[in-house]
Each structure stands twice: as structure tokens, then as C-alpha cells.
Design a protein around this nucleic acid. Structure first.
Ligand SMILES: [Mn+2]
Ligand SMILES: [Mn+2]
Ligand SMILES: [Zn+2]
Ligand SMILES: [Zn+2]
Lengths: 143, 143
DNA sequence: TATCATCTTGAGACGGCTTATCAATTTCAA
DNA sequence: TTGAAATTGATAAGCCGTCTCAAGATGATA
């Protein structure tokens, strides 16, 4: 998969720039991470237990945070657990969350993004990041 | 202050409807809460320690959550601690947060709100609440 | 106004999530 | 190959918010 190789290269560059090392665990976690849209550290922990039963939860957290710094992942705090989004494949996006069943729908809306910039400019701000989450009931849960 | 009285009335109605009681603590916390745009439970705890050194932190949390149910406050989760916004005076609003100095600017943008509804409808959702936070640098912090 | 079922409070225990600690291990530049 | 530096895994610690429960307050009722 050439995409995985691309991300691996991004990681490699980030590691080199910060005197960090490429470890077996980091490779393993990256590969698994790139297969999903968004995960929690806990979920990855259980997924990866099959491939490496000794991989520690702390390492998962550390590595996902590293991915955020490298620009491969983006952390969000839904409810109680942090969700790590794969932004390298899909780019920036926001979320609709069903409060009934927990379903998460990703969306992108350029017009909203543009208006956000407008609001920021009007207030003298330059936006670095933003978070937009819409909570509600999906069609199935409205019955 | 007629405004405080108005909110007190909203609270009174909510309490009546749910078989809850109006206590000295709830009055005290409401009065203090209405003087600010947004606070954390911990901050209120310290502010109110002067007026009532025995007021418990759990009571502050319980009461702020009660205000949310009554429609007087709105909770958000900035960073690690929950912020409780006074929405009774200002109505619904979103936030611009300076990552440099921590300044919070409140704003309202009907067009964005409308587009949010549009996105939700397109995906079969009915929105209950939403959260929009723009993080960036204010003009002062850009130097 | 007195009664008393019900609600509320305060103090601290508890729990979930994430980070810190640290000795043992691994990486990688030299 | 060597060794300084980074990383790991196990687990302790920390933080925030809720839960627990006995003591106290409230307010509908008589
Ligand atoms: Mn967005
Ligand atoms: Mn809004
Ligand atoms: Zn649903
Ligand atoms: Zn600033």
C-alpha cells in the first residue's frame, strides 16, 4: 500500500527532526491506525493485543500523541475517551454524533469553514485549529 | 437586579416541575453564577468560600448541572475542566479561544448555525446541541 | 405553626482516563 | 561493535467529576 508508505515517510521525517527513534511498536501502531477512521487508545490496545500481547497501553497513548504532533492524527474528546482521527487519508473533517447509538458521521462543509475564518478575522484572530461537533439523533434512533 | 430575579424565577419553575427544593446554597450559587460569562466549578468554589466556607465542591457541581437542566447554564469541556456558560443573559453562542493568552471571545453567527442544520438534515440527523470552538492567536499574541 | 416525608448537603471515597515514573531494553550514529 | 540516548511496559499517580450516606434543611399538609 503506497499510502501507508507515504505516512510512514511522514513519521520518519518527524522522528528524524526531533531525534526520536523508529521502533517496532511505532511501526505496528501506525499500520493499524491507518486502517481506521477514528479509534480510541483502548480500542487499539485490544486490537493489537493479538499481534503483540505485550504492547502496553501507555505506549499506545504515547504513540497516538506522537502521531498528532507529526500531523498524521488529530485528537478529539468525545464524551469521556479521546478519539484519534486519521486525518492523513481524509483530510480535515467535522462530526455528527448520534446521542442515541453513538454513530459518528464525518462531514466537510467549505461554506462553514469559510464563515469560521470570517468570524475569526472580524475578531482579530488567526485560526490554528477548530472543533465542530453536532450532537443529535440519527434517523434510526428517532423511533 | 431584575435580571437576576428573572433567572431566579426560571430556576423556581424548574424546581417546582421536578419536585426539587430551593435551598440557600442554590440561591447563593445562582447569584454568583449570573455575575460571570463562564466559570469552572473549582473557580466558583474558591469565590464562594468567602461567603460560605462550608459550601462543598460537590454541591457546586450538582448545582451547575442543575442550572444546565434548567436552561440557565451550558457546559462545555475546554481542556481538562468543564466550563459553565451563562446562556440566560447572552443566549447561545460559540467561542474563539486564544492559544497564546487564553482569552475567550464569544460570538454568534446565524449563517453558521443554519448551515449546521442543513448538514444535519442532509445526513438524517436532528440536532440537539452542538459545539463550535475556534482556536488561534489573538492580534496581541501574534507578535 | 408543627409534623415529617422527601430532598439536599458536605466530606470523603471512588472510578475512569491519561500521564508520570523508572528499571530494563532497544535503537542508531559513530 | 559500542554506548549514549531514546523507548518500552508495568504500574503508580493525578485529575476531574460523581457517588455514597448520615446529618440536616425544606415545604406541603394538617
Ligand atoms: Mn471543520
Ligand atoms: Mn453555535
Ligand atoms: Zn443513532
Ligand atoms: Zn492571545
Amino acid at each position: 500500500m503506497s499510502k501507508d508508505l507515504k505516512e510512514m515517510e511522514v513519521l520518519r521525517q518527524h522522528l528524524a527532526k526531533h531525534q526520536l527513534k523508529l521502533t517496532r511498536q511505532r511501526e505496528l501502531i501506525l499500520t493499524a491506525f491507518l486502517r481506521q477512521e477514528h479509534v480510541t487508545a483502548e480500542v487499539m490496545y485490544h486490537q493489537l493485543a493479538k499481534k503483540d500481547p505485550h504492547l502496553g497501553l501507555a505506549t499506545i497513548y504515547r504513540t497516538l500523541n506522537l502521531f498528532c504532533e507529526a500531523g498524521i492524527a488529530q485528537a478529539r474528546h468525545f464524551g469521556s475517551q479521546a478519539q484519534y482521527d486519521n486525518i492523513s487519508h481524509k483530510g480535515h473533517h467535522d462530526h455528527l454524533i448520534c446521542t442515541g447509538c453513538g454513530t459518528i458521521v464525518e462531514f466537510e462543509n467549505c461554506e462553514i469553514e469559510r464563515l469560521q475564518e470570517e468570524v475569526a478575522t472580524k475578531n482579530g484572530f488567526v485560526i490554528q485549529t477548530h472543533r465542530l461537533e453536532l450532537y443529535g439523533l440519527c434517523s434510526r434512533c428517532r423511533h
